[in-house]
Nucleic acid binder design. Structure first.
Lengths: 352, 352
DNA sequence: GTGAAAGCGCTAACAC
DNA sequence: GTGTTAGCGCTTTCAC
């Protein structure tokens, strides 16, 4: 073997140098100063600060049977939403000495399972899962094995998990009413398949209920399904929408997520349409970048959005996990983070 | 203690169940089948598949003195560039059974140091650092201690590291020449402080050299410094630029990074300017989302960008680290990933 | 082919 | 107050 690290400094080296036993050093490391004289304490202190000694978390983990590692499976790490999620999680976990291990499920259930398996095998103390699908026996199984699992923004069917998520349903209701008041019609929801992803489903529910409330007989007909983001489906659906235009009325699109919103905007642009005269467009803004970097304002003529407080969702999830780790018995909890509507020109038909 | 995990299955349990010794099971786990009869092998195989046994990576790490963990310190995880970086790194590392631990330095050097310390203390086998500053004695120190470190996209001064990064200098030259050919003047570079961040510095160099090459006496005067992204500095600088307009000429802005590009676009919009007639604007596109989600096309009238191949940079970095881990002796290497210019309407003054 | 035994670096009874 | 000792779960000589 070539040059290995020049032999690790261990607790034993420190003990010998300070002329005490491993136990005492260990106690020192764990802050149990009641068990030693102040001289001893100072001696150890000195020796350690003079050395480059760092206790091995691995050995510690083996002994304590806890790793201080938290596995985090993110459905799609490339989504800007996830970036904020990640920051929120890290900001809460790290001050408590937990290290989050972020992994990308790439929107594939099989991949999510692999990750979770590998994470559990690595001995994480808990799991945060932004799941790929609510139909998820595997994750239930994992929880049943005794691994603390907290869901992040997305529900799983048939089992009660700890969870924190962004409010989705009420905000959709607010959006529909806003568009209705502005006189848009038809009001449509562009969404990816929503059966297995809870926030999407909730949005559809909020949409459907409110549409019915404002007198629409068949809300389902106003839902435009976008199967594949990689294809030009959004464009085709936008075309379809424009063909079904009601004379004298302006149609509106609510995009189900921000990537879809971008696609719809792309379609609008390619078709040479003007917002809001030809079409009203709005959708979620889950980028969480603050007002100085707000893309929805840059795009002509300013896009109406509803915020998805990703950072807060991440932070809340982490807090729930911390609580769970401290008290395994406590009943399961759900934390809901509210959203708000940011009205801009893209859905303002009437003068204010 | 409440309900702990119902007692881990260990190698000893398997050994007893299969009627062999720990050693043999260990050999089995490590694929050393030469050391056992095929009956033994099958027996162990059966027992393991019937049990829920998973070898403990922690114990393994302790024994082997390697964790299969790779620490990854990202300067700013919220930047979309980082998302692609992360995917690239994960996609290369994980198939090799290495687990990347991503952490966010939040653009703070002190934070980066903390992270690296904590990562090293956790016994990572190697480090990938997308550093916050090229003036970085701490990271040099870490490398000198024998920790394999590979830099990601950003150089560190005074020490030769392994590194993979996106080409920055030549592309800036291409951009300047493109703007010059289109007749824009003055041609300006909006950049955040660039002294301590190598890609920015390289862009400034590419800019300066090319400006000089096309006959500009004092390129430095054409660099607009943006100190604080959170303030409206970009707007003020854009105003300043418009005041110094040369009669009959259209000024152009090259944004140094994508966040800045967004800010400039925001300024353009707020000032009611039209691209490209009033002002030419271009900048990097490091979002790596593919053509169906290209924001630079959505924004009126389509923004000229130069790609920053973030995914590839991440992947290349990981490959370099893997090589280093395998062969600590090999000379240090640099991998450069090329960029390309995507011309759109925002910088097209002449008809094609 | 197979196994006994000695650790990896640390913590926690349990003595003294 | 302090030290002795027995592991945590695994790998690896070395012996048979």
């Amino acid at each position: 073997m070539p040059d290995t690290l020049p032999k690790r400094t261990t607790i034993l080296d420190i003990a010998r140098a300070a002329g005490v036993s491993k136990t005492t050093v260990s106690r020192f490391l764990n802050g149990k100063y009641e068990y030693m004289s102040s001289q001893t304490r100072e001696r150890i202190q000195t020796v350690i600060s003079l050395s480059n000694y760092r206790p091995s978390n691995i050995a510690r983990s083996l002994k304590n049977q806890r790793s201080m590692l938290v596995g985090v499976a993110i459905a799609d790490i490339q989504n800007p939403f996830s970036a904020s999620l990640i920051r929120g999680i890290g900001d809460i976990l790290m001050p408590q000495d937990y290290v989050p291990v972020f992994m990308n499920s790439e929107n594939a259930l099989s991949r999510e399972q692999e990750l979770i398996e590998s994470l559990v095998a690595r001995g994480v103390d808990g799991l945060i899962v932004n799941t790929v699908s609510c139909q998820n026996p595997f994750i239930i199984e994992t929880a049943c094995k005794g691994v603390p699992v907290v869901l992040c923004d997305r529900q799983v069917a048939d089992y009660t998990f700890d969870i924190a998520y962004a409010e989705c349903k009420a905000i959709l209701s607010t959006v529909v009413r806003h568009l209705y008041e502005q006189g848009f019609w038809p009001i449509t929801l562009f969404t990816q398949p929503y059966e297995t992803i809870s926030p999407r489903k909730l949005r559809v529910e909020g949409f459907t209920q409110t549409m019915r409330a404002i007198g629409c007989k068949d809300p389902q007909a106003y839902i435009y399904l976008i199967d594949d983001l990689q294809e030009n489906t959004a464009i085709e659906q936008t075309k379809r929408l424009m063909q079904q235009k009601v004379p004298g009325k302006t149609p509106a699109v609510i995009a189900g997520n921000s990537v879809m919103l971008i696609q719809v905007l792309l379609a609008v642009r390619r078709m040479g349409l003007c917002m809001p005269q030809d079409i009203g467009v709005c959708g979620p803004d889950d980028w969480d970048w603050g007002e100085h970097m707000n893309w929805s304002e840059i795009i002509q003529p300013g896009i109406t959005t509803f915020t998805v407080p990703a950072y807060e969702v991440g932070a809340a999830t982490a807090r729930v996990l911390l609580k769970r780790l401290k008290n395994p018995q406590e009943p399961k909890q759900s934390v809901v983070i509210p959203s708000s509507l940011q009205i801009r020109a893209s859905t303002l038909l009437q003068n204010p």
